[in-house]
Amino acid sequence: MKVSRGEKIFNIMNIIIMIIVIIATLYPFLYLTAISFSSEKYVYAGEITLLPKGFTMKTYQVLLSEKLFWISYKNTIVYTLVGTFISLFLSTLLAYPLSKKHLKGRGIILGLVVFTMFFSGGLIPTYLLVNALGMRNTIWAVVIPGAINTYYVIVMKTFFEGLPVELEEAAAIDGMNTYGILLHIVLPLSMPMMAAMTLFYAVGMWNNWFGPFIYLDKRELFPAALYLRNIIAGAQQTAVSSGSNIGDLEQIEATVKSAAMILTALPIIMVYPFLQKYFVKGVMIGSLKG
């Protein structure tokens, strides 16, 4: 097939646009990385644009001795592991029965579940409830209230509906009960979808700072995202002076700040490209039922 002149020009333009998109997307990350490896004097002189100046690892050494950062980093790992497990557990328990179209009352349950996507109780009643339940200053305030994402449940339900029934039926005839079927037949068949859900929930928990911000008062409980937020709040000098969780964090330099950001983003940056195939499919399943 011959390619016309116009098309050739279009193709070249298209590649140029895409390269611009790639640069614009990556630049802020490179910029923060450059700051984190630069000497402070060049950073404050405003001389960093793309590459580090006065290359140094000192910043990362300073960060290594920042005990509170590592405590919060450890907290993030714990919250992410526990939270992701709870989320996947509850979402699967909900999505699997709802994928059985013969189930009596399915329509009503589905309606009640989906309704929460369009209308929610809101911040204040939820906040008061979580406090009243005595979850304040515990890991549970972080991992329980938002454990189930309705949108993901719909995605999982749609996926389960698409699985071949024959295997489940055969297992049932062999005397396997529903729990066994779910655990030994359905879940192994759903691994690609579960991988996507794991990524979505884990990223959500890894990045979560607002829940911890309103429910946790003790610094030793803060996740890394909240630790970073407090640095920003200090730098922005917008924080309400009565807030107890800012204090000396204000003093942290731009270089250390950037290093902490990079270290917090790094695990996600390293993992998500390998799960791309799965999460793209996850989004596509969701788009069918929207």
């Binding site: 328990l93 349950i109 929460t116 109780g121 938002g146």
Partner: peptide, 15 residues
């Protein structure tokens, strides 16, 4: 999961 919806979605709605 339904208990979760009742407690963390519907009670706040009532709230």
């Amino acid at each position: 999961p339904l208990a979760h919806y009742l407690i963390f979605r519907y009670i706040p709605m009532y709230g």
